[in-house]
Nucleic acid binder design. Structure first.
Lengths: 265, 265
DNA sequence: CAGTGGTCTAGACCACACT
DNA sequence: GTGTGGTCTAGACCACTGC
């Protein structure tokens, strides 16, 4: 690890002058931010995989030639962003969608009373799964070029026998080469866990656009509701480590027995 | 400030034994958590009001007889929860809904392209404002007893001339004694700012339950849509400092030109 | 200039988990 | 016991703000 770190004292003055001359913002980050970026790189490259133990704070401090406190602050931020998980007495682990207390980390749906766990696992039915060339809008959302290969998956989730979610999922063809309907259908457990273990793609964060729409004929049929029934439209873009979009998901949620829960602060 | 703090070393051993004897969980928090609670108390009692400067880290360290680093960690958490705001070189300020970069902190609505600011301020029209006895469901949400006095407000928000949000707001009668339709109508600026300045009530966090519903006759009329049109139903409970519910808000959002934006991580 | 928050260090000790 | 993360301290220096 011969990575060179810049201490604030070494470079602050000269850099401020340089960047002023070129008209750039002072692009200097504190040491712990630089450490954070280095750790992030190791996560991206897969040096430490989801669920694995990363080196201890002291080891990292030695490797990066900084104090333990500086490493600690870097890891603190990574933990706040749910990229790693600290466990006192054991160490720091790469976050994973597996073995989480909440089964679906990005699914904000709740039954009108109780919680999702009390409803048992969702019954999943895959309607369709095919490879195709990305239409312009899908391509844009996935940071691809129109016509690039993508994988499309359509499925229905039912809770306690009631079809509740109809969703279309688009994945970039490259990273998910080899994903088939059979592979998906035979997999027990959350989709994002399969993505991690089989394709090395970890979803880190997501953005959702939510609207109310009327059920069209096809959706109504699959969800067992009347045409025109109000449905919650949830369009999710999920990102992996470097803000790289890796999944587009368009869901239609029945919100008679469930609601979408959000916490603001 | 004669508040007594318990250091971990002083009390950890004996307390563990004591609590084990009584069958309680070890209720000991680290020093910085105790400091955080003390600062929180000063925020609740209004010793420092929204927008005001709180004592410097050094002053608080002296007051609480701990090191600056411990105070710092307490304030770090308060800042992460948006209860205070740090500004380098100036100090730490009590968070306020006023003078925030984003006008509506709890409003997640975005135009299909651009952002809310680019649409200019919302036009607000108050439909109704009255005092009444709380129905059972409203009372429960506001932690009141059925029949307690509440204030109900109904209004429409329009963006660029298009009615977009119809919302009913319920407020507990006690804390908001003296709030009238005129007072609301004449007030320029966000409602939550008025709550802070006139009633000393600061909304700290909120929970929302989101569903898709069909417009009924009254809502359709007020929003200028057809009856049966899908609308986003957003039920928000807003809380002040000690997780005390202080507002219930039921909104119907038109989501043809806007969407509800959510970020997951 | 002094005062604020922000960073970095070094060292001590505590709480927890495994062996 | 050893090693991990968690807390607490003290002191140094940096960056920003306003006098």
């Amino acid at each position: 690890m011969a990575t060179t770190l810049f201490s604030l004292t070494d470079t602050a003055a000269s850099d401020h002058e340089a960047s002023a001359a070129v008209g750039l913002a002072p692009a200097f980050s504190p040491l712990y931010q630089q450490i954070k970026v280095l750790i992030l790189k190791s996560l991206q490259t897969g040096e430490w995989k989801p669920g694995e133990l990363i080196p201890s704070e002291m080891e990292l401090a030695v490797r990066f030639r900084v104090s333990q406190g500086t490493v600690r602050k870097a890891i603190d931020e990574l933990a706040a962003e749910n990229l790693v998980m600290r466990r006192q007495g054991k160490g720091t682990f790469v976050a994973t969608h597996a073995e989480q207390q909440v089964q679906y980390r990005f699914l904000r749906l709740m039954p009108n009373s109780g919680d999702l766990r009390s409803e048992g696992p969702a019954e999943r039915q895959i309607i369709d799964c095919k490879r195709l060339r990305a239409p312009a809008d899908i391509a844009r959302s996935l940071a691809l070029r129109a016509g690039d290969a993508v994988l499309q998956l359509r499925r229905v989730l039912a809770f306690q026998g009631a079809p509740t979610i109809l969703e279309d999922v688009w994945l970039p063809g490259g990273p998910f080469k080899g994903l088939t309907a059979e592979r998906l259908a035979s997999y027990r457990g959350p989709m994002y866990v399969l993505f991690e273990t089989e394709f090395g793609v970890r979803m880190v964060r997501a953005e959702e656009k939510i609207r109310a729409v009327a059920a069209d004929a096809a959706s109504a049929e699959l969800l067992g509701v009347r045409v025109g029934e109000p449905l919650l439209s949830v369009e999710r873009t999920a990102y992996t480590y470097n803000d790289l979009p890796m999944e587009l998901r368009r869901g239609l949620y029945c919100t008679d027995k469930h609601y979408y829960k959000n916490e603001l602060s």
